[in-house]
Amino acid sequence: MFIRRIRAVLAPATTVALALALTACGSDSGKPETGADGLTELTVAVSPGAATSTPMYLAVENGVFEDLGLRLDLKVLEDGSVAIPNTLNGQTQFSMSGFGAAAQAIEKGLGIKMIGAANVIPTDPESKYQAVIVNKAAGIKNMKDVRTWAADSTEVDPAQAHAVDSLGGNYTALKRVAVPFPAIGDTVADGTVDAALVNEPWLSVALKTGKTEILTYVTGELAVPGSPGAVFIGSDKFMTANPDVTEKFIRGVRTAYDYAADHMDEVARFVPSTKLNDQVPPVVALGEYQRGPLDAAKVQRLLDIFERYGAIKGSVPADKMIHGS
């Protein structure tokens, strides 16, 4: 597997609880250091997922941030639950975070904002990046036949719940089984569960077992096309105290992911250079990258789904969650 996924990033309640505990003493808004060469030095936390983070490594290699007067020290988030508290206490100036964790933290008033996104839910209606797969021997014809479901956590996943219910199933009635993410396809293949929602590269791996089949690809109204997956966050205090640095970083992130979206083959070839994985992935496994700034309307659609399934209260609209909106 060339991409790893951090479960804590996808467990918002755990992340926010830790953030509340670790930031009780306040947050840091200090001025970042400047190197002898005049570059402003920033520590930025990124996902261990190669597809998500490779555009940042490629941008650093290509001098995108240096051209903006910034030197980035990219730190891999082996434990995603510390992304928010580390941003608040100044260990990192900016960080990737799961969308759900960031939305919950903002709603609780923890003093962060979303400043951009790395990847998005695919917008191509013909996308084959993610699908609901079922055990081939189970005789499942539609989502109503599904009784057991594998995911990397038993916590409610609003995006998966939306897909299941839109297909005529009943997400809350499913028996959800927690499985380490790379093994979810195997759990469907061996019949431990009926079904799961799986994305590339694990989708291709699961299908190659010959024991799973696709019930449906998850696109269009089954998803929220163009809405963010992994987002970048910054603390309100740091960004208020350092507006120029913040705007330069945001500009660099947009440049990085705009370039990645237009040069997917180059991104795939660069993956081994990141040391996040030593294999060159197929381009389809990279998914789709964010182009330009966060779209508040698309973020709001995702927030509405999170509210519907109880992940957030819905008290903060999208334009108040995005820095500069």
Rank of each mutant, 00 (worst) to 15 (best):
G90V: 04
I84M: 03
S153I: 10
N62K: 10
N199T: 15
D28R: 13
E247S: 14
S235H: 09
L215S: 13
M96R: 00
Q290W: 01
T54R: 11
T187D: 00
T172M: 14
T246D: 04
F94R: 01
G100M: 03
N135E: 06
D124P: 00
Y289P: 09
K298H: 09
A101F: 07
L88E: 02
V271Q: 08
G90L: 07
A45I: 02
A103N: 08
D145V: 04
E78G: 03
S29K: 08
P293F: 14
G35E: 15
V224C: 03
S153D: 11
K31C: 01
D262R: 15
P32A: 07
A59Y: 02
A223Y: 08
A178S: 15
P317I: 07
T212H: 10
T15F: 04
A151R: 09
F94D: 07
K144Q: 13
D244K: 14
G310M: 06
V193Y: 06
L303S: 14
L215P: 15
Q290V: 02
P281Q: 10
I322G: 09
S315E: 13
T172G: 09
T240V: 10
Q130G: 11
F99C: 06
Q93T: 11
I233P: 10
E307F: 00
A50P: 07
F94T: 05
L302G: 10
L303P: 10
A17E: 14
N62L: 05
I312R: 03
A105L: 02
A117P: 12
T14D: 06
G292M: 05
H162P: 11
V164L: 12
E33I: 05
D194L: 11
A19Y: 06
D258V: 11
A163T: 15
E200F: 00
A318I: 09
V164Y: 09
E78R: 03
A285V: 09
R254E: 10
A241I: 11
S53I: 02
A117E: 03
G210N: 10
E247Q: 14
D79Y: 08
G35V: 08
Y57I: 05
I6D: 11
L167T: 12
V46R: 01
E213S: 09
A261P: 01
L72G: 02
T87N: 01
A59G: 04
L167K: 02
V188N: 07
L174I: 10
P228Q: 05
Q279K: 15
A161S: 13
V134M: 00
A105E: 01
K113F: 08
A195L: 03
A137N: 12
L207G: 12
A131R: 01
K248D: 07
F306H: 11
T92G: 00
R301D: 13
G63Y: 07
V76W: 12
P158I: 08
T23R: 03
E61Y: 05
K108V: 00
D295Y: 13
N62G: 00
L174E: 11
N135K: 04
A196T: 06
G191F: 08
E221F: 03
F232T: 15
S47P: 01
T209W: 09
F181G: 00
D194K: 03
K141Q: 15
M1Q: 08
I312M: 02
Q290A: 14
S127E: 14
D278E: 15
R251M: 05
I133T: 12
V179L: 14
A118D: 06
T216L: 04
L174K: 05
